[in-house]
Design a protein around this nucleic acid. Structure first.
Lengths: 150, 150
DNA sequence: AAGAAAACCTACTTGTTTGGTAGGGATTAA
DNA sequence: TTAATCCCTACCAAACAAGTAGGTTTTCTT
């Protein structure tokens, strides 16, 4: 049940863009620096997010990336699905797959995976970048005490 | 957010043992056949479950495996943690790791992963093999109509 | 017009994991 | 004693992860 760095980096990069939202394009260099991610690797990740329509790019000097929608309109789930594929823990509970379940016993395990899938989706689809920004703002005021009550 | 076949096969094998619970040892051959899993591969998987104390083995002819505890005392989470490691979607929310979070921003994403982790754990720790058997029994009576309302 | 800052692109690399297979040895019921 | 069964180590091919390398193209600034 692991997330690859692609998903992690992607969320962190998008969060960084959300923090700067409304203040013009942000260069990848800055994002990579602030989030401590290899710039070149991040380039490949953000290319996927661009193709998926979650960010827009501005080329040339002083260019960079901006969120394609408001931070409140982009959820963690949107980002993860682009970078990691569908959240189904096993293939057979994936909506895209027309995979038939052959026996009743398998159905029972399938039900377990479906429950896992739903609970994950409920979490990641309910948290938007705006929520994360708000949380960060809150943390800033609480002066680090935040770290102790995650 | 994928589960490897190891986890899937493991749960299905344990479920099979639960169905036969109380009726003596079940050979790996039978389990593999019924669940359509490579016997040799399953051998490696069940070895891990044995070392973790979830099943006991009886060697020799007419031997096999039995659950080490009652089906109601073994959760899906117990099985998955043995075969897939801790359920933390990212390393930094793993209890075993003494990984310090360096910046407040990272904390925000960390909080997201912690929520995901908790919701997964709540599901897999609350479903026992006994629950799965009960569900299978129910499905048997509903004569296949079960398949359509997962 | 020149230079630099940026996005964009394809290919390569290195190590790890996955999902097994091969080939035996040890134990025990019949 | 023999067949069924668990037990063990080693090996393997393919895929994936997490980057690096080395460019091209676009556009702002001077």
């Amino acid at each position: 049940m692991k997330l690859s760095t692609k998903g992690q980096y992607g969320v962190r990069a998008m969060f960084e863009l959300a923090l700067q939202h409304g203040r013009g394009p942000v260069s990848l260099k800055l994002v990579a620096e602030r989030q401590d991610i290899s710039e070149h690797y991040l380039e490949q990740i953000i290319a996927l997010l661009r193709k998926a329509g979650l960010v827009n790019s501005i080329r040339g000097a002083q260019g960079g990336y901006v969120l394609a929608r408001e931070p409140g309109e982009i959820s963690v789930g949107d980002i993860i699905r682009v970078l990691e594929g569908p959240v189904a823990p096993v293939e057979c509970v994936n909506d895209d797959t027309s995979d038939r379940c052959m026996r009743a016993e398998q159905c029972v395990s399938k039900m377990v995976w479906a429950k896992v899938k739903n609970s994950i989706e409920q979490v990641i689809d309910s948290i938007t970048l705006a929520d994360m920004c708000e949380e960060a703002e809150k943390a800033r005021f609480e002066q680090g005490s935040f770290m102790y009550h995650i």
